[in-house]
Design a protein around this nucleic acid. Structure first.
Length: 551
RNA sequence: GCGCCCAUAGCUCAACUGGAUAGAGCGCCAGUCUUCGGAACUGGAUGUUGCAGGUUCAACUCCUGCUGGGCGCACCA
């Protein structure tokens, strides 16, 4: 069951309810301030519901049902004088005092028409027009191919960015490139050692070096081509970065900006940032190191920014990097991190506050890991030995569409089980195909139809069957659904919604014929499935998944 | 030891952030095709929401204490 709200009608009804409470002299009650409309627990309770009478019952010392009755009477008086009142078919008091609103068919028909007129822009809005969003994700060290953890981040980040764009936000996708430091040095050494090994030298390969076979590939290329490499770290970084870029491209993810830490340091911004913080009194020296007074800003303890050997910790460039994000004009920063970074959140929030920004301007989303299964059994992984499932392998095994959909099927904050053998199946077990099949089926009907759908000649009021109504109501929910994705910063609900749309369509299809009916009815149903196609296509596009006309 | 997250049907997950009879998918059992794509549809069985208290009209949801799992707690990135 999906719970969504339809913004426009919802806002209107909330204002009417508030007016009615004032009318009854209840406007000042605390509970009355927080009037809200929810989707009822079951569809038999109408389309929108409020529990306001239950909330008021305590203070008024009256049974909820009685209060509800009075409120409804007042609402009905108000609605009678408003043209939007036509959207409401009926208001009932049900359960132990819920007020349920039943919307009129005219309202839903209007929405349906809107979908067909606006097409894939039906759910677009301009809520985000004042926001410049920078969404930073993946940002894996360029020391090896991308893993499934990065793959999930890529799927979530890219889809979230798509959704925000459709809501009017100006979005930049950015990858922070950790192209210098310890890990990069170790990468260089790993390549150098493998090269020696290939040349027949006896080498000892340390445990903490990169064990993956791709290091051999790099070394072999250097050897075969007889390249003179001065800096193995730099060579390796560039080599691997190209692999990563290709992998992401093949996954349908394009970054607007690759932000180099090396460039950041060279620009002097790190030093200038630390200097500024020092002036504000946020830094102090102790034990030969430079500390950030983060504990005064909500962190558990203070953090080192410059080690006693004079080098930066990871935090120093990161503070400068975030300062630079604001300096570039972004006013909402979204960071997608792996679960191993959750202890880092307070540190970064402290840094943001020290820089003089509201910490709510940064949203940090922890993307939980995915466990890969084959035939119901978990696939063993070991990063140390360089044995982990890569994005490339998942793509090769199940394809782009299934991969992206599966990574988004659970809430981003919860752990995900990803069974490759299920994602590969082309049966109803596989939700991707279920959704895409609905789209293809509709395309096929539209193509076979001898009659053309014409909005001017469509009489939506002919759509009265149970399955038709259910489908229409579902289709109208997309705008509200995208709002939920926005509020939760999570695209996952869209995968659930698309499955529900597909289900509603398949059920309709099974019970009723589109073609070969009375001319008028056929036209109405053509319009209905046209709208369903638009909604399916819009959703799939936002998830970065193809919309096949044939399968 | 300190801190954060999780525990719901055999399995994977929901439950509109305190609401109405805790719902879906998979799996299992039984059905539906002279008709627009069967990659579909219909029906059935499955629960002491980890345990024990508390808060209230109402608790899977909030509070307290247990039990069992995951992750953090670097002058690593």
């Amino acid at each position: 069951m999906l719970f969504v709200k339809n913004k426009m009608i919802e806002d209107f009804l909330i204002s009417v309810i508030k007016d009615s409470l004032k009318d009854l002299g209840l406007g000042k009650d605390d509970a009355a301030q927080a009037v809200c409309l929810d989707l009822p627990a079951e569809s038999r309770f109408g389309e929108l519901s409020t529990n306001i009478a239950l909330r008021l019952s305590r203070g008024l010392k009256k049974p909820p049902a009685e209060i509800a009755k009075n409120i409804v009477a007042s609402i009905e008086r108000i609605l009678a004088g408003r043209k939007e009142g036509a959207h409401v078919k009926e208001i009932r008091v049900e359960g132990n005092g819920f007020i349920n609103f039943y919307l009129s068919q005219a309202y839903f028909c209007g929405q349906l028409k809107d979908i067909i007129i606006k097409g894939e822009n039906f759910a677009s809005s301009s809520i985000g027009r004042s926001k410049n969003v920078l969404i930073e994700f993946v940002s894996a060290n360029p020391t090896g191919p991308l893993s499934v953890a990065h793959a999930r981040q890529a799927a979530v980040g890219d889809s979230l960015a798509n959704i925000l764009e459709s809501l009017g936000f100006k979005v930049q996708r950015e990858y922070y490139l950790n192209d210098e430091g310890n890990q990069i040095n170790i990468l260089g050494q790993s390549i150098e050692l493998r090269l020696k090994e290939l040349s027949g030298e006896d080498v000892e390969f340390p445990q903490d070096h990169y064990q993956g076979s791709y290091i051999y590939d790099i070394a072999r290329e250097i050897k075969d081509k007889g390249l003179k490499v001065g800096d193995f770290s730099e060579y390796g970084t560039e080599y691997i970065l190209n692999i990563i870029k290709k992998e992401l491209h093949d996954f349908g993810v394009e970054f607007d900006c690759w932000y180099s830490q090396k460039e950041l340091r060279k620009s002097g911004k790190i030093d200038r940032t630390l200097e500024a913080l020092k002036k504000e009194g946020f830094l102090y020296e102790e034990d030969g190191a430079l500390w950030f007074r983060s504990s005064s800003l909500g962190d558990d303890k203070d953090r080192v920014v410059i080690k006693s050997d004079g080098s930066y910790t990871y935090l120093a460039p990161d503070i400068a990097y975030h300062k630079d994000k604001y300096a570039r004009g972004f006013n909402w920063l979204i960071n997608l991190w792996g679960p191993d970074h959750h202890g880092y959140i307070n540190r970064l929030k402290a840094a943001v506050k020290a820089l003089g920004h509201d910490s709510s301007s940064v949203s940090i989303i922890i993307v939980q890991l995915a466990t890969i299964f084959r035939e119901g059994k978990p696939v063993q992984m070991s990063t140390r030995r360089g044995q982990y499932i890569t994005l490339r392998e998942v793509l090769q095994e199940v394809g782009l569409d299934a991969a992206r959909f599966f990574f988004l099927m659970r809430r981003t904050s919860s752990h995900l089980d990803f069974d490759l053998s299920v994602a590969k199946k082309q049966t109803s077990e596989n939700p991707v195909y279920y959704v895409q099949y609905a789209h293809a089926r509709i395309c096929s009907i539209l193509e076979n139809s001898p009659v053309k759908m014409s909005l001017a000649e469509t009489d939506f009021s002919l759509l009265k069957e149970k399955e038709e109504i259910a489908l229409i109501k579902k289709l109208c929910q997309l705008p509200s659904l995208l709002n939920i994705c926005l509020n939760t910063c999570d695209p996952y609900l869209l995968t659930v919604y698309l499955q529900e749309i597909a289900e509603a369509f398949h059920k309709f299809y099974d019970q009723h014929r589109v073609l070969g009916q009375d001319q008028e009815l056929t036209k109405s149903r053509l319009a209905l499935i046209q709208a369903a196609k638009i909604i399916l296509a819009t959703g799939l596009k936002l998830l970065g998944i193809s919309r096949p006309e044939k399968m």
